[in-house]
């Protein structure tokens, strides 16, 4: 009886949602802020990838906030799991194929992640994607080898220094320019690696930060498992 009423109410609410969302035309060109961004990205920011320009340059303040959200999530996890961790991960040793494969794939995955975040302003991708790819590579090693350790001290230092780099880049805009996060470096030629002002610097900082954070998060969680 309760399930039936729940499903009926959900269906009604879903129908209402759908009827409002269907009034928005999908996929046609509309008059919005996005059109301005598409036309003016290369000229104003020097980055070829529009999405990166929007994320780091036009709305860089939001990106600072999102990096902080990830930081808080990792911090909260560390605070809650503070005294529940063992000293070593107690998973089983993985099989031979997994171990050999992980050993070969790990440097390639880390290289791919680094490529993605260094070339954020030229190719699709960026700091968050690169950091997540690196964390996935480290996860592969965590699962395959019991003895693979990452230094907790090094991860904390990388996170803090990368975060402070981001805020200091923003403050440099305040000191040498007019506003927080303003681009104070020369824009260069679009399409080259060293171009687009502060965008590569910020994305490299974000890449390191996200990679270190997600690795620390996975390490925290994997250490709480007691094997049976």
């Amino acid at each position: 009886m309760r399930k039936a009423t729940a499903i009926i109410i959900l269906a009604l609410v879903g129908y209402y949602f759908l009827s409002v969302f269907l009034t928005v035309p999908f996929g046609e060109k509309r008059n919005n802020v996005g059109q301005y961004y598409l036309h003016n990205t290369v000229r104003e920011t020097g980055a070829v990838n529009s999405v990166t320009a929007i994320v780091v340059s036009y709305r860089g303040f939001d990106t600072l906030g999102e990096v902080t959200v990830l930081f808080i999530a990792s911090l909260g996890l560390g605070a809650i799991l503070f005294d529940k961790k063992g000293k070593k991960r107690r998973l089983q040793h993985a099989s031979l194929i997994v171990r050999v494969g992980a050993h070969m794939l790990y440097p390639l995955i880390v290289l791919l992640g680094a490529y993605v975040f260094v070339h954020g302003h030229l190719t699709p991708g960026g700091g968050f994607q690169g950091g997540a790819i690196i964390a996935t590579g480290v996860l592969l090693m965590f699962i395959s080898y019991r003895s693979f350790e990452t230094s907790h001290k090094a991860l904390t230092y990388i996170e803090s220094i990368a975060g402070m780099t981001f805020v200091l880049t923003g403050l440099s805009g305040l000191i040498w320019g007019n506003s927080f996060l303003q681009n104070v470096l020369p824009l260069g030629e679009p399409g080259r690696l060293i171009s687009a002002g502060i965008i590569p610097i910020i994305y490299i900082a974000i890449g390191f930060k996200v990679g270190a954070e997600l690795t620390g998060l996975l390490d925290n969680m994997l250490k709480t498992i007691k094997s049976d």
Binding site: Y58, F61, D62, G177, N178, F180, L181, Q182
Partner: peptide
């Protein structure tokens, strides 16, 4: 913020 006037910036 970031030198772009609203509504294109924050």
């Amino acid at each position: 913020i970031a030198g772009f006037k609203p509504p294109f910036g924050i």
